[in-house]
Measured scan of single mutants.
Amino acid sequence: FDIYVVTADYLPLGAEQDAITLREGQYVEVLDAAHPLRWLVRTKPTKSSPSRQGWVSPAYLDRRL
């Protein structure tokens, strides 16, 4: 999967189903980028939180090589 970094805090609107909150600087794996406005991502697990999966706007993501 492609690795992206979150460029700004992402707080989903209440109406968005299956969306997750992301923090600036967080790394995520993009699982599904087929839709231009919503990408399915999975967060990297940390010592304090397990990995999470949900939909985010790709405008908040920047690809890492």
Rank of each mutant, 00 (worst) to 15 (best):
F1D: 07
F1E: 07
F1R: 09
D2F: 13
I3Y: 10
I3F: 08
I3K: 04
Y4E: 00
Y4P: 00
Y4L: 03
Y4N: 01
Y4M: 05
V5L: 09
V5Q: 07
V5P: 01
V6N: 00
V6E: 00
V6S: 02
V6M: 03
T7M: 09
T7I: 15
A8L: 08
A8V: 09
A8G: 07
A8E: 09
D9Y: 04
D9H: 07
D9V: 03
D9E: 05
D9C: 06
D9G: 06
Y10R: 03
Y10L: 05
Y10D: 02
L11D: 12
L11G: 08
L11N: 14
P12R: 06
P12K: 06
P12D: 06
P12A: 08
L13Q: 13
L13K: 11
G14C: 14
G14I: 12
G14K: 11
G14A: 15
G14E: 15
Q17V: 14
D18S: 07
D18R: 05
D18N: 10
D18H: 08
A19I: 06
A19C: 09
A19V: 07
A19Y: 12
A19W: 13
A19L: 07
I20V: 06
I20E: 03
I20S: 02
I20C: 04
T21V: 12
T21E: 14
T21S: 14
L22S: 00
L22A: 01
L22C: 02
R23M: 11
R23W: 13
R23P: 03
R23S: 09
R23E: 10
R23D: 06
E24V: 14
E24G: 07
E24T: 12
E24F: 11
E24W: 08
G25K: 02
G25Q: 02
G25I: 01
G25N: 03
G25D: 02
Q26T: 11
Y27V: 13
Y27I: 14
Y27E: 14
Y27M: 11
Y27T: 08
V28H: 01
V28M: 01
V28E: 00
V28K: 00
V28C: 03
E29W: 15
E29K: 05
E29M: 10
E29V: 10
E29C: 12
V30F: 01
V30M: 02
L31S: 01
L31A: 01
L31G: 00
L31V: 07
L31N: 00
L31C: 03
L31H: 02
L31M: 07
D32F: 07
D32P: 00
D32W: 10
D32S: 08
D32Q: 06
D32I: 08
D32V: 07
A33K: 15
A33I: 05
A33T: 09
A33C: 15
A33R: 14
A33Q: 12
A34N: 13
A34H: 13
A34I: 08
H35W: 06
H35M: 06
H35I: 04
P36G: 06
P36D: 09
L37C: 12
L37N: 13
L37T: 11
L37D: 15
R38L: 10
W39V: 02
L40E: 03
V41N: 00
V41E: 01
V41I: 07
V41M: 00
R42Q: 07
R42W: 02
R42P: 01
T43H: 03
T43R: 01
T43P: 02
T43Q: 02
T43W: 07
T43F: 05
K44S: 10
K44G: 06
K44L: 15
K44H: 12
K44Q: 15
P45M: 07
P45V: 07
P45Q: 09
P45A: 14
P45E: 12
P45D: 09
T46Y: 07
T46N: 08
T46M: 07
T46R: 05
T46S: 10
T46K: 05
T46F: 07
K47D: 15
K47F: 11
K47R: 11
K47L: 13
K47T: 12
S48W: 11
S48D: 15
S48Y: 12
S48L: 11
S48N: 14
S48T: 12
S49V: 11
S49H: 12
S49R: 09
S49K: 09
P50E: 10
P50I: 07
S51H: 04
S51I: 09
S51T: 09
R52G: 06
R52N: 08
R52K: 15
Q53N: 05
Q53E: 13
G54A: 05
G54Q: 03
G54Y: 09
G54P: 00
G54I: 09
G54F: 10
W55D: 01
W55G: 01
W55F: 09
W55Y: 10
W55E: 02
W55I: 03
W55M: 05
W55S: 02
V56T: 04
V56L: 04
V56E: 01
S57K: 05
P58D: 01
P58G: 02
P58T: 04
P58Q: 03
P58N: 04
A59G: 07
A59Y: 07
A59R: 09
A59V: 11
A59K: 11
A59C: 11
Y60E: 02
Y60H: 08
Y60N: 07
Y60S: 04
Y60W: 05
L61N: 01
L61D: 01
D62T: 15
D62N: 10
D62M: 14
D62H: 11
R63H: 12
R63M: 11
R63I: 13
R63F: 15
R63V: 11
R63D: 06
R63A: 10
R64W: 15
R64G: 11
L65H: 13
L65M: 13
